[in-house]
Nucleic acid binder design. Structure first.
Length: 197
DNA sequence: GTAGTGATTTTCT
DNA sequence: GAAAATCACTACA
């Protein structure tokens, strides 16, 4: 069936409990009207980082200059620099002063193929271009300047293109040393763009 | 196919 | 000074 017209997500989508947003965000499109042209991708993998009691959450030790965007109300972009060379994109959730966010870990390319291609090593198949949080930010060219953007009224936002996953898998998070027992990772079971099975 | 490791710099202790 | 929500490359099977 052809998909009806896409709908941009509003504030009320983001200001709900993080785990509810996590399930709903799989299959949504991330859109960025960059200076080089429009980029978009279907989100297939996220991880939740929820509150000051989650040891793996950046806000676990209170508010700092780096994580202050996590304390905003839902619907902002939290982008941070990691391992000396990569950026990671998060979508802030819940209400103001409750630090929580979803790390976007994987997506399938939709629009802006030619622009993204120049930013990814030549050998990789297109299905793997956005399979990983660092790769996604590199392909979209998201940096510190985009940290704190409001997803409800700027060039960076989510929209529903009516392409929901057939099935969602829930597992433990990847790449962290604390909080490993929590089932906070969600992905589209059948997508080729999931960072790791 | 899997396993191990170097790159590179911000951030907080 | 050490760790970090990662990736790509190399070696080997």
């Amino acid at each position: 069936m052809p998909s009806p017209k896409p709908k941009k997500m509003h504030r009320s989508f983001y200001t709900r409990p993080t785990l509810e947003v996590a399930e709903d965000i799989i299959g949504m499109s991330l859109v960025y009207k960059s200076p080089q042209g429009k980029l978009s991708a279907r989100i297939v993998e996220v991880e939740a980082y929820i509150g000051e009691n989650d040891p793996a959450c950046h806000a676990a030790r209170g508010k700092t200059k780096r994580n202050e965007v996590m304390f905003h109300k839902g619907g902002y972009a939290y982008i941070y620099f990691i391992y000396g060379m990569y950026y990671c994109l998060n979508v802030v959730t819940e209400k103001a002063d409750f630090p929580a966010a979803l790390l976007i870990r994987g997506a399938e390319t939709q629009e802006g193929i030619e622009i993204m291609q120049k930013r990814i090593p030549a050998k990789q198949p297109q299905s793997r271009w956005l399979a990983g949080p660092g790769k996604l930010c590199r392909a979209f060219n998201l940096k510190r300047e985009q940290n704190g953007l409001d997803l409800t009224n700027t060039e960076l936002y989510l929209e529903n293109r009516n392409e929901p996953p057939e099935k969602i898998t829930v597992t433990t998070r990847i790449g962290i040393s604390k909080g490993r027992s929590l089932l906070y990772r969600f992905y589209d079971t059948h997508s080729p763009a999931v960072s790791r099975k």
